[in-house]
């Protein structure tokens, strides 16, 4: 049976966007003839020409700044930050300009651009190659932040991101690039801003996104043996955040664990936990727990398993949800 990897699905999304809209251009470091270090742009230059998919000088602020200029002048750029931490030199352009341009110009200039960020760890990568930078982006008003976890979502959410008139940070979990589906890619999926219930359950809501979704599903399966029926919610986008799906689930189950790979302090996981506390207080049977990365610089490859959230850590958090009282 034919299978498609997430990297291939992203590539297909870019191909389809380039084919359908002349205004779409793809550029960045090594995205041309090489096809990107994760092969997401494989074959695009050959198929669409150097004016549609091209290599730039090695300078991330320049890449994002040029995308802003091109977006101001009629194009819909899709750019790649080769690795999460290498996107940081572009942070000023993202925060001071991409995110604010619509507002600065009182709505007269919008910036339809997508910044693809290969993100997270779990790949045995060296330092500066495994960061989880979503909190910086989600914290910044004026950005859409999309976090696919499945091959199908990678395809439809990237296409939907390119279609938006606002700047999108598109987070691609590196360790899922080679995850596969044997399904045909859907033409359309749920819109950005709608979470997915990946597994329904009665006892606990496990809320997560991006790289941690497979772990959440694994933990939910393991929880069955302990007698817990875990509902897994995949947020799919962090901005907009689908609070309604989260709160409906927590009101149903009465218990919540938020799972994310990023360091937990001042994180997206913290935001979700706070919102559950504010919105679902009277339905909660236990305090909301978070399972996140530690607040340490991302560890060297041989120690990353000590850092990354695991099935055991998720189950420990679930076990801690005051079951004896209910």
């Amino acid at each position: 049976m034919a299978t498609t990897t997430m990297s291939e699905a992203l590539n297909q999304a870019l191909q389809d966007c380039l084919a359908e809209d002349d205004r779409v251009v793809v550029f960045g470091e090594d995205v041309g003839p090489l096809g990107g270090v994760f092969r997401v742009t494989d074959g695009l230059t050959a198929k669409f020409g150097e004016e549609r998919c091209f290599d730039t000088p090695l300078a991330e602020s320049g890449i994002v700044g040029m995308a802003i200029g091109m977006a101001m002048n009629g194009f819909r750029p899709v750019v790649e930050m080769q690795f999460d931490a290498f996107g940081l030199p572009a942070f000023d352009q993202v925060v001071s300009h991409a995110a604010k341009y619509r507002n600065r110009t009182r709505g007269t200039i919008s910036l339809p651009l997508v910044i693809r960020v290969p993100t997270n760890g779990g790949i045995g990568g060296l330092e500066h190659h495994c960061d989880s930078s979503e909190a910086y982006y989600a914290h910044t008003p004026g950005l859409i932040v999309v976090a696919p976890s499945t091959v199908e979502d990678a395809y439809t959410l990237l296409r939907d991101s390119v279609a938006l008139d606002d700047p999108v940070i598109f987070l691609e979990p590196k360790h899922l690039y080679w995850s596969k589906t044997d399904q045909e890619l859907p033409r359309q999926g749920d819109p950005i801003g709608q979470a997915a219930v990946r597994r329904s359950g009665r006892d606990v809501s496990l809320i997560t996104y991006g790289s941690s979704v497979p772990l959440a599903l694994e933990a939910a399966d393991a929880a069955v043996e302990e007698g817990w029926d875990v509902e897994v919610i995949d947020l799919r986008s962090l901005v907009p955040l689908d609070e309604a799906t989260v709160t409906a689930s927590v009101r149903k189950t009465g218990r919540a664990v938020v799972l994310a790979e990023a360091p937990g302090f001042a994180s997206v996981a913290s935001e979700i936990a706070a919102r559950i506390g504010e919105e679902c207080f009277h339905s909660l049977l236990a305090p909301v727990r978070r399972v996140t990365g530690f607040n340490i610089p991302y560890p060297p490859p041989k120690l990353e398993n000590n850092y990354l959230p695991s099935v055991d850590r998720v189950l420990d958090a679930v076990a801690d949800l005051q079951w004896e009282d209910s």
Binding site: S61, G62, G65, M66, A67, I68, G69, M70, M72, N73
Partner: peptide, 11 residues
């Protein structure tokens, strides 16, 4: 903004 000028011009 100098790099935006490059993007606008290149477009």
């Amino acid at each position: 903004q100098t790099i935006h000028a490059v993007g606008v011009a290149y477009a």
